[in-house]
Design a binder for these strands. Structure first.
Length: 152
DNA sequence: GCCAACGTTGGC
DNA sequence: GCCAACGTTGGC
């Protein structure tokens, strides 16, 4: 089983939105590295941190589980959708998504600032790499458990 | 709103 | 295949 960290802007889709809906499709990914991670490396049953980005206090706010993989992202094929990609062939869709299910909030949340402070203990955490802009990044088992130990 | 760090695009 | 211009991400 693998672990992940998945970013979302809370103004767009927050952990509270996910809790209210229980499951959600992680659509809108338009980055090939991230698509390849979802397509090739994610598996049903994997766990992921829900990370709030571009907000007042960025950081990890909860946990979700991957419940479906290999789904075609319909927003890429819908000309009326903001995320429409005219270059995606409906016969051979290039953008994929996964389905996630809410597991729990982490209270208190674990701010990015805390992760930075714990960098020595965490080692090479992808989300702390300078210039990292991938919206989904892998987390090692050791890092996952270390981060969980930061919250009661 | 600024800016650094990328990824993507398109002319050549 | 190079590379400049442009767009996006995301912390601050």
């Amino acid at each position: 089983m693998a672990y992940w960290l998945m970013k979302s802007e809370p103004d767009v889709f927050s952990i509270d939105d996910l809790k209210a809906r229980r499951v959600a499709e992680w659509d809108g990914v338009r980055n090939y590295q991230v698509r390849n991670l979802m397509r090739d490396d994610m598996a049903v049953g994997d766990l992921a941190f829900f990370y709030h980005s571009s907000c007042e206090v960025p950081g990890i706010v909860g946990i979700m589980k991957i419940t479906k993989t290999g789904l075609v992202d319909p927003t890429a094929l819908d000309p009326t959708h903001a995320q429409f990609d005219p270059k995606s062939d409906p016969q051979n869709p290039r953008w994929m998504m996964v389905e996630v299910r809410y597991q729990q909030h982490l209270r208190p949340m674990i701010p990015l600032e805390r992760l930075k402070r714990e960098q020595r203990a965490l080692g090479d955490l992808w989300v702390l790499r300078p210039g990292n802009r991938l919206s989904i990044v892998p987390v090692s088992s050791a890092q996952w458990h270390k981060i969980l130990s930061f919250t009661p």
